[in-house]
Each structure stands twice: as C-alpha cells, then as structure tokens.
Design a protein around this nucleic acid. Sequence first.
DNA 1: GTTAAGTCGAACACCGATGTTCAAGTTAGG
DNA 2: CCTAACTTGAACATCGGTGTTCGACTTAAC
Lengths: 205, 205
Amino acid sequence: MATTPAGDTRGRRADARRNITAILDAALTCLSRDPDVSIGEIAKAAGVGRVTLYGHFASRAELVDAAFARILQQADQALAAVDTSGDPRHALTDLIASSWRIVARFRALLVAAERELAAERIRAHHDQALRHIRTLLARGQRDGVFRNDLPTSWLVAVFYSTLHSAADEITAGRLREHDAPQMITATLLSAYTPPPDSPPRTTSA
Amino acid sequence: MATTPAGDTRGRRADARRNITAILDAALTCLSRDPDVSIGEIAKAAGVGRVTLYGHFASRAELVDAAFARILQQADQALAAVDTSGDPRHALTDLIASSWRIVARFRALLVAAERELAAERIRAHHDQALRHIRTLLARGQRDGVFRNDLPTSWLVAVFYSTLHSAADEITAGRLREHDAPQMITATLLSAYTPPPDSPPRTTSA
DNA sequence: GTTAAGTCGAACACCGATGTTCAAGTTAGG
DNA sequence: CCTAACTTGAACATCGGTGTTCGACTTAAC
C-alpha cells in the first residue's frame, strides 16, 4: 500500500506509478462527463480495484483535487507557450483560444471541484494559469491599449467568467462550440477597450 | 396536513398560510447564508416543526425551488418597475443597479439551487426576469446603440455572468461591494458598444 | 528466488441528512 | 362548541456512497 499522502510518484514501484496515472486519466474523463460519478466508477474506468484507488488517494476530495490540479497545470503550460510579446490585443486573442480549448473540454470538472473543494482551493489552483492572463492585461493597461479605469483583477475576473459563460451557453444549446472563441474575443476586446472620455493615453498625439 | 403539491396558499387555513410564508422567509435567509443548511435548521428558524415543513414542501428540492422562484419573481418585479423607454445605455445602467441588489444579496441561494435543481429548471426560473434584459438589449441593437454582430442571447449571457462574477469577487475579497455596480456598468457598456469596423450603423452619416 | 510493495474483491461499519409514521395535542372557522 | 384542519416531537426506516479492513494473491525489483 501507499500511505504517502500526495500523488508524488517518486519511490513508487513501476506498476503503482502506472496505476496512479491511469486513475488520474480515468478521473478526468469520468468527472468531465458527470461531476457526480462514484469513486467505484472511476476505479473501474481506470481498470483498477476500488481499494487500489484508495491506496493512492485517501479521499474523493483528494482525487478531485489531484485531477483538477492536473488540468490547471496543463492550462498553465498551454498559456505559457503563447507568445504574448506583441500587440496585446492580438496576444489576448491567442490566450483566449488556448484557454478555451481547455475550458470547453473540462467545464464539468470545475463543477465537480466546486462541489468537493473549498473556494480558495479552487482559486489557488487557478492562480498559476491566470497569472499569464493578468500579466498580459496589466501590460496592455500600461500601454494604454486596455482600459486603465478598472483594476486588473476585475479584468481577469471578466475574462474568466466570460469563458465559462460561453461553456454554459453551449451546454444549454444556445451557442455552437464553433462560434464561441470568436464571440468571446469580440466581447472581451470591446470590454477591455479604454472608454472614450477621461483616461490618459500614451499612444495618441 | 396538506397533501397539496405546491405552495398555493388558497383554501389553506390561516395558520397554515402563515407558516408557509414563515418557512419561505426562513429558507431565504438561511439558504443565502449557507447553501447547505439542513431542513431542520430552516424549520427551526421558521419557528415551526420539521414535520410541519414537510407537510407543505414534499422535499428539500421542492422547498429550494419555491424559495428560488420567489426571489426570481421579486427580481422580475423590480426589473419591470424600471423605466427602459429612454436611452438604452442609460436604461441598461438602471437595470444593472436593480439586478445587482438582488444578485448581491442572494448569491448563495443560487448555489443552493444549482446543487438541488436541474440546470433547465434554474434557467426557467430566470426566464421572466431575464426577458427584461433581453428586450432592452434587443432594442439597443436595433437602434444601433448596442452591437449587432453578436446574438442577443449572448449579450444576455454576458450580462448575467458579469453580475455573478462581481458577486464572486466580493466573496473572494477582491472587490468591495460599493464599487461593484460601477464596474459592472463600465464593463458591460464597453462590451456592448458596436465595434469600430464593419457593421451597418443607422446613427452616423 | 526472495522479499517487500502492490493489487484484489468481498464484506463491513459508518454516516448524516432525508423523508415517514404515529398518536396526541392545538387552533381556526362555522 | 364541534369538527376538521393543522401542528408537534419523537422515533424510525432508509439510503447510497464513502472509507476501511481482511487475507490471499501477483508482480516489480535486486
């Protein structure tokens, strides 16, 4: 058995490591299909006994946490790979596209996480990935390309909620997956555009 | 006992009617404080026996449904009272203010509803209230004040998600309740503004 | 080949809130 | 005042997933 708390695969035997990733994979597909799947279902999908699963993950919450962490880590990597050096508006479009792939695919996983994990924990998982967004938005604000009259944290929140809103609209059947990225982009670019009146600009004469 | 399924107070005895509203009131305050309150807690808060509560609401889901319906009905009335005849941008500001009061106060109730009720049911409850938003947005689109390159349903979704996002930000401590309405308004007005390039305009020469 | 690590299935205790039943007590309403 | 409607607390059945324990078996690793 593995009494070790976390999913650190070091020191484990080869078959154990194999099973851990199999369980994680199964958890991902199962949970993103139905946030309420039982542990038994996940174990079965992983081709593993329920007891074995509990040998690696002490509780349902711990499993969900691990699965969720994995996705957000994957998201972090995807966003890190985006070139955000150029025009902020163009970079934003790319970040949206990258984020969207993951959000669209694993939206149900977030529901599972919300059921199982504390709100701050969920936020903590997001932190790394969202930092890419925040960084770009902040730069855009400094450059005067994005509005400066609202705090960066709020712009990040709007980014996040717009993406998830699109996912919900797809689930509800009011939006086609194909159209989502473009709508999100159009919406956010407008939302981030500096308002016509007050704030100081650096670009204009 | 009351075998009648719903909360129709007609034909009930006076004390029964009184209890029903007391229960509903208690459910509202309790659920919006903690989405996971037990039925017993709600009954106690209503000054009523648990059995009495079950006499009026057959299940937890039914109670949540009724409480949720009540709030959305209240929201519907509040929105209906807003004068939306003038400048769409100004009217939107008013609708946001009205909506916000309710969203900010009962955000936790939505969480409870999401746990207990089917997604379509939740949507159905929203329908009436959201219709006011939709109507105004559609008019603004026709008038060329709001962008026409995105479907009205999407604009409604953005409205909804931005409000709730603000509520979440407050819960997370990243936003002060006082600042929310202004930020929401600024964000949505920008988001709804027609993009500079393509679409046909009626106002400009 | 030896050993420790890992796996397996079955069986179990647990849990806490939900929802039900009962018989006795109140209260509204005519 | 009489009756039917209503309330009440206590006690109970239930329920399904969770998490644990067991002893026997397999497999990786050296």
